[in-house]
Computed example of a mutant assay.
Amino acid sequence: MNANELIQHLSDHQVVSKIIDLPANEVEEWHAHPWHQVLFPTSGLLQSNIESKSIIVPHNGMLFIPANTLHKSVSVTKTQFLAVYLNPQSPVNYGDNPKSCLVTPFLKELIVFLVEHGLDNHTEQMTTSLLCVLRDQIAIAEHYEIPLLLPSDRRLMAIFVELNQQPDLALTLAEWAVKVGASSRTLSRLCAKEFNQSFAMWRQNIRLVLSLQLLEKNISIQNIALELGYQSDSAYIHAFKGLFTQTPSQYRKKYLLV
């Protein structure tokens, strides 16, 4: 049963949910739901479009999509996400503005509880109260901006697929150019056009976003740096802080359960 059929079937509920598994590079084409949606990857990575805006949703981030808003998602890697649908006729006012935000351990547990247990198994007042907590947690959650990763050009996509599987690949721009059948100048021009950044910065952002999944595991910062292809943990920490405005250890402590 797809999401809109589920919503129609349970239209008297305040909240319904489902777990969705996507293989890498799976595309969920443009669609909308009559209810608000909370989209939360528990593993993997999504690149989503909400109308004209594109957003990266990591496994410790979430996206709030207002009811009847057109959106589209692509799984950057093999991804599982929790989809929570919130009835706009509920006593809880969720607002009409999309939001991408980082998920604290408390907010994660609340979303997981919604999916695993369902709040409509309880009294309507308890359901309303807990959904108010959800709304408030989303409202105070920190917004984030992660640069886009997925290219539309087939040559850049070939590079992305390899880096996604082996982020420590140390090929130079010239070596990548030979490998994918393009000139170095062409690859540089394509990165500037698609991402408004250099090839080196795009490659670094791929590594840094992939590192978010490694940070949830019991792996030292030094070993994560080496796995990503950095020459030292200090180089990785410096690059991570440049994108996420905090060190990997601070990020791990604040947002990840390890």
Rank of each mutant, 00 (worst) to 15 (best):
F40Y: 15
G229I: 10
M201K: 14
A3Q: 07
S249P: 03
I219M: 12
L169E: 02
Y94E: 04
P147S: 12
L169P: 02
H9S: 08
N68P: 05
Q125W: 02
T245G: 04
T77P: 01
I206E: 02
H122E: 11
L6K: 15
S73R: 02
P41R: 05
Q80D: 03
L150K: 00
S11D: 12
L226D: 05
R185M: 06
P66G: 11
F160A: 02
T123H: 08
N25D: 11
S211I: 06
Y255K: 01
W176V: 10
L46W: 03
V115D: 08
F160R: 01
L228A: 07
Q89I: 02
S198Y: 07
H143E: 14
Q89T: 14
T128R: 04
N196L: 06
M157L: 15
E194I: 10
S73V: 12
H13Q: 15
G242T: 15
H36T: 03
L150N: 00
L173T: 06
A177W: 01
P58N: 13
A239H: 12
G242W: 02
D96V: 08
E29D: 14
F106Y: 14
R185A: 11
N196D: 13
H31N: 08
A225M: 11
L228C: 05
N25W: 07
A32F: 07
E175P: 00
I7P: 03
F113A: 15
S52A: 11
Q80H: 06
F113Q: 10
H9G: 03
N4A: 11
F244T: 09
H117W: 05
C101L: 10
D12T: 15
F160W: 05
F40T: 07
Q125Y: 05
E29I: 07
I159L: 09
L134Q: 13
S73Q: 04
I7K: 03
N205D: 10
C191I: 01
K253I: 05
G229F: 07
I111M: 03
I56A: 03
D153P: 03
N93D: 15
S129L: 14
L148N: 10
H33E: 03
F199S: 13
L171K: 14
S48P: 04
